[in-house]
Design a protein around this nucleic acid. Structure first.
Length: 571
RNA sequence: GCUGGGGUAGCUCAAUUGGCAGAGCAUCGCAUUUGUAAUGCGAAUGUUGAAGGUUCGAUUCCUUUCCCCAGCUCCA
């Protein structure tokens, strides 16, 4: 059975139930979506959480009655008459938008809905469904339209499949980086600081340092040069870059001594000015400037979400200035860089999207076309399948987005590669060609991790907080059995620290069981239990988070094992 | 920003029609010196997000505001 058909049919049953309970409700649309379905309703009073149960009960009745889904074809005039009689004003709008002469309706029991179909044979075929949540949603998704109430639900072929899905949701909830971030003390937000502004605690800051260190070194290996720009720049530069025209509502702007300044929402202008600081030759290109650039964007309050959507964040940002004929090759290199990086961090799967020119944008059509060709050409060279998002590009150029997939198959947008002919024009960027004349370079904007904030959130959820050894802020916790062996424990601590490992010593006056439990909950990769037996022969009792008790190892053996495990991940 | 739901100790949560704000964990102290997921006893902890209002009396009712959550819209 096609799940989409099943779910869509279930949304009809839900709408039927809602109409039975609240006859005045006006219907919107009720499609199937990735993991389920929804239906939008226009109802005066908000739905209460308890209403979901009532609706579910009604739905069970409808399913028990096993109504047939009957399809019929009507002319648009007939259909309009039918829905006008029912007072379904949104359906009338939908009918107007349908280009064909005739429309189809589906009837089950006393319920009729405008619908292209197809549907299951009868309502009795629905074996397992659940209503999940209520939320507001604009009619047609347009902000200025009235807000309707949307009920989300899902349906599966069997109760077992539904159970699995609900377990997955529960698993996702437990892995929520906001919960883990608090439990494991990685980061916090503070009302006095402001929304969307992250405070990194020692463990979070250590993780961030490890990610930064890795990605910075990778950039240097791949021919990027480090640059650093200021966080605040005069408004003049943002006028020139076009940000004031196209991005102003997202910027923090303020005055100092009558001069207007803005916090940078992007790093490009700084890099551009470094490029412009002297005359460039075609022989210099490509020039690749890299910066862990912290930017501030005034995101709407309702969109902020943990580390995934914040107002201040740091991008692993680079700009590649190159010749027209180098563009495709450079894009290919960036794609390779992204794939390598995702693999190192433990992400095995990803999806690719190509976004085209938005309505509000700068630049010439021919340049947009050329940029689009360069991006799609590079994707074809890498044999990557991709989805096209019409009109979703940046204001200065089209882009490739690479979304990583985490352990629960959820997608996270991190990497993006943007092609830009417009900013070189605006800033009058030049290089001297072979013939001694001036030419315009092309600029690529790209990030690999995206932002350190979002990437950290993705890592935490992907691993459920149990980070691999090389990324764990604390790699090893030493657990002395009693205070009698504290001096041996300290010796082990010193030896491991000298080898560059990140060590904690749990010297609390607690029982062993308690310390093991706490270390497990902190998700530390290795626990070393040391007591009198170990102190006597210089060994360690090793317990790993992943494998449990591993028996006794000599200190040197353990160090070798750790080194091997770290090196396997990072070349 | 919009719709709906929330905000009580560091954390997770209680508090019957408006009537002295509580528990577990964490913290501190004492005892215990422990062998692989919670040792026992004791102590301390609050402008109930903030401001205003109604009331003899507000965590509880009303207004404003801030922040969080689920979505919509948007995005690294």
């Amino acid at each position: 059975m096609d799940l989409n058909i099943l779910r869509h049919s279930t949304s009809h049953i839900m709408a039927q139930a809602v109409k039975a309970l609240w006859p005045d409700v006006k219907l919107g649309i009720g499609p199937s979506i990735d993991d389920g379905f929804y239906y939008d309703f226009d109802k005066k009073e908000p739905f209460e959480p308890e209403d979901l149960e009532k609706i579910e009960e009604k739905m069970l009745e409808i399913i028990r009655d096993d109504h047939k889904f009957e399809r019929s074809e009507l002319t648009k005039a007939e259909a309009s008459k039918l829905f006008k009689k029912k007072g379904e004003k949104y359906k009338l709008e939908l009918i107007k938008e349908i280009p064909e002469e005739t429309v189809t309706i589906y009837k089950n029991g006393n319920f009729v809905d405008l619908c292209r179909g197809p549907h299951i044979e009868s309502t009795g075929e629905v074996k397992a469904f659940k209503l999940l949540s209520i939320a507001g949603a604009y009619w047609h998704g347009i902000e200025t339209n009235p807000m309707m109430q949307r009920i989300y639900g899902t349906a599966f072929e069997t109760e077992a499949d539904l159970g699995n899905y609900l377990n997955l949701l529960e698993e996702a909830r437990k892995r929520d980086h906001r919960v883990l971030g608090k439990q494991l003390e990685y980061f916090s937000f503070n009302e006095e600081v402001g929304p969307g502004l992250v405070l990194y605690h020692p463990k979070g800051a250590m993780l961030r340092y490890l990610i930064e260190d890795y990605i910075r070194k990778e950039h240097l290996k791949r021919g990027y040069q480090l640059v650093v720009g200021p966080h605040v720049m005069k408004s003049d530069i943002w006028v020139r870059s076009g940000h004031f025209e196209y991005y102003k509502e997202n910027m923090y702007i303020f005055k100092i001594e009558n001069q207007e300044y803005a916090l940078k929402p992007m790093n490009c202008p700084g890099h551009i000015l470094v490029y412009k600081s002297r005359t460039r030759s075609y022989k210099d290109l490509p020039i690749k400037y890299f910066e862990l650039g912290t930017v501030y964007r005034n995101e709407k309050s309702g969109v902020l979400h943990g580390l995934l959507r914040v107002r201040g964040f740091t991008q692993d940002d680079a700009h590649i200035f190159c010749l027209r004929e180098q563009v495709e090759e450079e894009i290919v290199k960036v794609i390779d860089f992204v794939i390598d990086t995702l693999n190192v961090f433990g992400f095995e799967d990803f999806s690719v999207e190509l976004s085209t020119r938005p309505a509000k944008s700068i630049g010439k059509d021919e340049d947009w076309d050329a940029a689009h060709h360069a991006l799609s050409g590079a994707l074809k060279k890498k044999y990557l399948r991709y989805k096209v998002n019409e009109g979703e590009g940046a204001f200065y150029g089209p882009k490739i987005d690479i979304k990583l997939k985490d352990a629960l198959k959820r997608e996270w947008q991190c990497a993006t590669i943007q092609c830009d002919f417009a900013l070189p024009e605006r800033f009058d960027l030049k290089y001297i060609g072979e013939d001694g004349k001036e030419y315009r370079p092309i600029m690529l904007h790209r990030v690999i991790l995206g932002s350190l904030e979002r990437f950290t959130g993705a890592l935490l959820e992907h691993f459920g907080g149990a980070l691999p050894l090389w990324l764990s802020p604390t790699q090893v916790i030493i657990i002395p059995v009693s205070e009698k062996v504290l001096s041996y424990a300290r010796k082990v601590e010193r030896a491991l620290t000298e080898h560059g490992f990140r060590i904690e010593l749990d010297h609390r006056n607690e029982r062993l069981q308690k310390k093991v439990r706490d270390a497990e909950m902190e998700k530390v990769p290795y626990m070393l239990v040391v007591g009198e037996k170990e102190a006597a022969d210089g060994s360690l009792s090793v317990r790993s988070k992943a494998q449990g008790e591993m028996g006794r190892l000599m200190l040197d053996e353990f160090i070798q094992m750790m080194k091997k495990e770290v090196l396997e991940k990072v070349k």
